[in-house]
Design a protein around this nucleic acid. Structure first.
Lengths: 166, 166
DNA sequence: AGCGGATGGTTCAAATTTGAACAAACGATA
DNA sequence: TATCGTTTGTTCAAATTTGAACCATCCGCT
C-alpha cells in the first residue's frame, strides 16, 4: 500500500475510454433489447448460454458462473424467464439439490427472433468500428483479463502467489 | 431486419470475452472499493471526474453525461456522497436552475486515500496483463466505440445517415 | 450406518438504477 | 415584455442486484 505505480497517460486514457465505452454500450444494448423483446441484457445472456449448452439446460450454479451473476441474481432472473415461459426449472436427476434451467421451445424462438437486432447493435457500435486486427486484439486482451480474474482466488490480490504452507 | 450479418467465430469470441471480462472486472473493482472505502464504483467515478474538473465542480447534467448515468441516478449518488461530506451542492451563479456538485476537501482526501488500491486492481487484472501495444490498441478501440455511440443520435441506428430533408 | 464439513438454491432486506412525470427557470421571438 | 418550447434537476414507483442467512442434500471417513 506504499508507493503506488500510477497509470501512465496512455494507460489512464485506455482505462477511462474502456469504462466509458462499456457504460455507453451497455446502455445501447439494454435499450435495444428492451424495445425489441422486453428482455434484459442479463436475460438475453442467460438464454444465449442455455441455447449453446448440450441439451439446452444447465445447472443454476454453473449458469450463474458463466453469465457472471450472483446466485440470488440468477434465481431471480430464472424466475422472470419462467413467468414468460422461456425457461423451465427441472430437478437434477443426479443431484436432488440441483436445479436445471431448461430453455423451452418458446425460449428458442424468442432468442432467434431477438438475436438479429442484438447483433446489429453489437456490430454498429463496436465490431464494425474496428479492423479485423483490432477485433482479434480485443479478443486476446479480454481473454487474458478473464483468465487473470478467474485464477486469482477470492478477493485478495498480492504480488506474491499464496505460500504453499499458508 | 431481414438477412442478418452474423458474427464470425472470432468476432463472437471477442464479444463474449469482452462481456465476461467486463462483468468480472466490475465485480472486482466494486468489491475492492467497497472494502477499502465503502465507495461504489459509480461514486468513485464521480469523485474522480470532479477532481479533474476546473474548480473541482461540475453541473449535474454534464457530470451525468460524463460518468454515463441517468439524471436521477446522479441525483441519488450525489445525495449519498453529500451525506458522507465528500461532495457539496452549490447553486449555479449563471443559471438559477443549475446545481453545481463540488468536491469537498474531505472528498479530495478520500479520493487520494482510495486511488492507490483502485489502481492496483485495474493494473492487476487488466493493464499489467497486456503489452504496451495492446494497451494502446484497447485505447484506440474503446475511443472509436465511444465516438460511434456519442454521435449516433437517440436509439435509432440505420445503415444510412439521416436524410437532410427528414 | 452415521458424522461433519462443503455445496446448491432460495429467501430476505437493503442498495442502486432507470424512465416518466413535474416544477422552475431560460431564451428566442413576436 | 408576454409566450412557447427547452433545459435542469428532483421525486416517485418499479425493476434489478447483491450478500447474508438458511435448509436440504451430498460426500469422504470412521
Amino acid at each position: 500500500m506504499k508507493d503506488t505505480r500510477w497509470l501512465s497517460e496512455t494507460e489512464l486514457d485506455a482505462w477511462v475510454a474502456y469504462v466509458t465505452a462499456t457504460h455507453l454500450l451497455e446502455r445501447r444494448v439494454e435499450e435495444q433489447l428492451k424495445a425489441a423483446s422486453g428482455l434484459t441484457h442479463a436475460q438475453y445472456e442467460i438464454l444465449a448460454k442455455l441455447s449453446l449448452s448440450p441439451a439446452r439446460r444447465m445447472r443454476m450454479t454453473e449458469l450463474a458462473r458463466q453469465v457472471v451473476v450472483s446466485k440470488s441474481g440468477l434465481t431471480y432472473q430464472i424466475g422472470q424467464l419462467e413467468k414468460r415461459g422461456l425457461v423451465e426449472r427441472t430437478t437434477c436427476p443426479s443431484d436432488d439439490r440441483g436445479v436445471l434451467a431448461v430453455l423451452t421451445d418458446e425460449g428458442v424462438r424468442c432468442l432467434e427472433r431477438t438475436a438479429p437486432g442484438h447483433v446489429a447493435v453489437v456490430r454498429a457500435f463496436l465490431i464494425d468500428q474496428l479492423t479485423p486486427e483490432e477485433v482479434e486484439t480485443m479478443r486476446r486482451i479480454m481473454t487474458k483479463a478473464t483468465a487473470a480474474m478467474e485464477s486469482a482466488s477470492g478477493h485478495a490480490f498480492r504480488s506474491a502467489p499464496p505460500a504453499p504452507g499458508a
